[in-house]
């Protein structure tokens, strides 16, 4: 392969995820005879938003090198959802309080995660896992009382659409563009990628490795918290189990989106492509009338097939 086409491919690993999403969308439409194309897309945009936002956070964490991962996302989502709804207390006037409170929780969770990693020198998997146990208990203790519905204004924002495009999707697409710039065109993003490739070399190149990792874990936790808040708004209230599927999903979208699990090589657009792909996949299987078991098996097979195909291009794990 010539270096230029290799470079071109290196530059756009996210194309595949969009292609796959498109393919599945078309396959579904072929099956339904073209009915509900717009609704499907609109639904996909709405649901993918949540995958995308946690996926971006997870992507930054995974980019900082092998072993870096945030397993506290589900517990964080549950806790943030519960806390946000309680702070808003169904009053439009309190929306700002909820948002600030949830952002605060995100920052705290990120600091906690990083403190465990740094002070105890334990692998992030175990640190964030232990933290998630504690967060989960907090969520149970705090959120066990009656389900508080979101304020009217917030609910409208979380579920509303303009020309079929959910407000939330617009916001998260904007966030993705912003984070894309952060990754490729800022000192912070470059540092993250450098650390992911070779942390020792990064420190010797004058990068403050600890601070960058710290910032990354906080960023990921804040995104997780925002996901929890909006998800609670979207589904009319927080529930304890609402974060569960986001652990696997956040990792899956990162990988399918073309980010290297070994770190140092990532891209933001792929997160969106992969999020759309995941949602469309489930809805396609639903359309085909597959039972829950078959649906799960196929989802699993496709994840494995994708990673096998993706890694044919580039060796992932160091």
């Amino acid at each position: 392969m010539s270096t230029s086409s290799l470079a071109a491919l290196r530059g756009k690993p996210w194309l595949w995820s969009f292609l796959a999403a498109l393919l599945i969308w078309v396959a579904t439409l072929v099956f339904t005879g073209g009915q509900g194309a717009g609704a499907l897309l609109s639904g996909a945009l709405a649901f993918s938003t949540f995958f995308a936002i946690v996926g971006i956070g997870q992507m930054f964490v995974i980019s900082t090198g092998p072993g870096n991962i945030d397993l506290s996302i589900p517990a964080n989502i549950a806790l943030s959802g519960a806390l946000g709804m309680k702070l808003m207390d169904g009053q439009d006037a309190n929306i700002w309080l909820g948002v600030i409170g949830v952002l605060g929780i995100g920052v705290l969770v990120g600091c906690g995660n990083f403190a465990l990693i740094r002070l105890l020198r334990i692998p992030p998997i175990i640190a964030t896992l232990s933290a998630s146990f504690i967060l989960q208990s907090l969520a149970i203790a705090y959120g066990r009382s009656v389900r508080v519905p979101p304020p009217e204004g917030f609910y409208t924002f979380a579920t509303g659409r303009v020309f079929g495009v959910p407000y939330l999707a617009i916001v998260v697409i904007a966030v993705a563009v912003l984070m894309g710039y952060v990754l490729t065109r800022t000192r912070y993003g470059r540092s993250v990628l450098a650390i992911g490739q070779n942390a020792r070399a990064a420190e010797l190149a004058g990068i403050r490795v600890g601070r960058m990792r710290f910032a990354t874990y906080v960023l990921c936790a804040v995104f997780g918290s925002l996901c929890g808040l909006t998800l609670a708004g979207f589904s009319g209230g927080a529930s304890l189990g609402m974060g569960e599927e986001y652990l696997l999903a956040s990792i899956a979208v990162v990988v399918i989106g073309g980010t290297s699990v070994a770190g140092g090589f990532s891209n933001v657009p792929g997160i969106w492509g992969a999020s759309l792909f995941l949602y469309l996949l489930v809805s396609m299987l639903n359309t085909f009338g597959a039972s829950a078991g078959v649906r799960l098996i196929l989802t699993g097979l496709i994840i494995i097939a994708v990673i096998t195909a993706v890694s044919g291009r580039k060796n992932a794990r160091a």
Partner: peptide, 18 residues
Amino acid sequence: GASFVAGDRQTDGVFALW
């Protein structure tokens, strides 16, 4: 500000994916 030139290129210097 100080800059470092590594002798052990692969472990201390090069960012291999870049």
